[in-house]
Write a protein that binds this DNA or RNA. Structure first.
Lengths: 160, 160
DNA sequence: TATTGTTATACTCTATAACTATA
DNA sequence: TATAGTTATAGAGTATAACAATA
């Protein structure tokens, strides 16, 4: 239970953060330039496009956005752009269901080739097939672990 | 040269972005709560703390920030908080050199234990030593590749 | 009472363009 | 002319708290 990280850990942490930042930046630029979308908006559209039917706001938020109001805001922007619709849910009357429109699917289709090109050129080019599998495996474990963790606010960790 | 990614690639890409986002969020919360720092500010302080002496704005910006004005702004905030100083460079008279103060080092020291705790709890707990080495190796290659890439603006990639 | 979602609001971050000063 | 950095400013993203409506 040393109080600091091993050098390999520190190195892995920083390089992960840095490369993720670079990738995020590259991807944001492409989405903005070719489709006037942020990555968050792209994620929301991808989720809706992949879902069988409409999703509730809560289902949609999961893992993409960290506050309710943030999602309300983004969904409002997507709705104003005609890419999604919002309506009353069939079951629980409190819920709002969000559905992707044809224009939304078209926007995804418009943006996707360039997106694939960027991710391939930036992320995958220096990686072998094995690297990709290993990376996917490792990050899947990390993600599942993080999501299983208690919300982990700063409380309870304070020492002074 | 298929126009889409292999399923493993798509999966690796999305899970990388998602886990990086979760990690970034957790880390921002810790830094903000315990040290009133953003991750960018933390990175800048860490660089300055690790450097032998002062760094120029340009050296400091590298890989952390994507616009000159962004760095000017962040450096201004750090200076106002007393964590760094800015002065005229010794050689090139156009340059500004930035140096960390004692208060800046104290702030880093104050924040670091909690930071280590968060990264260990969120990122490293589900990973073996080998995983960490492999992850560091893969992401290092990705980072080096991205940094070697031409700035890669949206121009030249447009199809329609 | 707890949960779903929205609203109002304020704050931070980032980026673009115009500008100064030095090389 | 090109480079280092700042300023002004505008836009986007995000979060908190108060709120309404339903469970």
């Amino acid at each position: 239970m040393a109080d600091d990280l091993a050098p390999e850990q520190l190195r892995a942490y920083f390089v992960l953060m840095e490369s993720a930042s670079l990738l995020h930046h590259a991807v944001e630029q492409q989405l903005r330039a070719e489709g006037e979308l942020s990555y968050v908006q792209f994620q929301l559209l991808m989720r809706l496009a992949g879902a069988d039917g409409p999703l509730t706001m809560t289902e949609l938020a999961d893992g993409v956005v960290y506050s309710r109001s943030g999602l309300t805001h983004q969904a409002g922007l997507l709705e104003k752009a005609g890419l999604v619709t919002r309506g009353a849910g069939p079951g629980d009357q409190r819920s709002t269901v969000v559905e992707i429109t044809d224009a939304g699917r078209e926007r995804v289709a418009k943006v996707l080739p360039g997106h694939v090109e960027v991710t391939r050129g930036q992320l995958f080019e220096p990686l072998s097939g094995k690297d990709v599998r290993v990376l996917g495996d490792i990050m899947t474990r990390v993600r599942d672990h993080m999501r299983a963790q208690p919300p982990r606010s700063a409380a309870g960790r304070k020492r002074r």
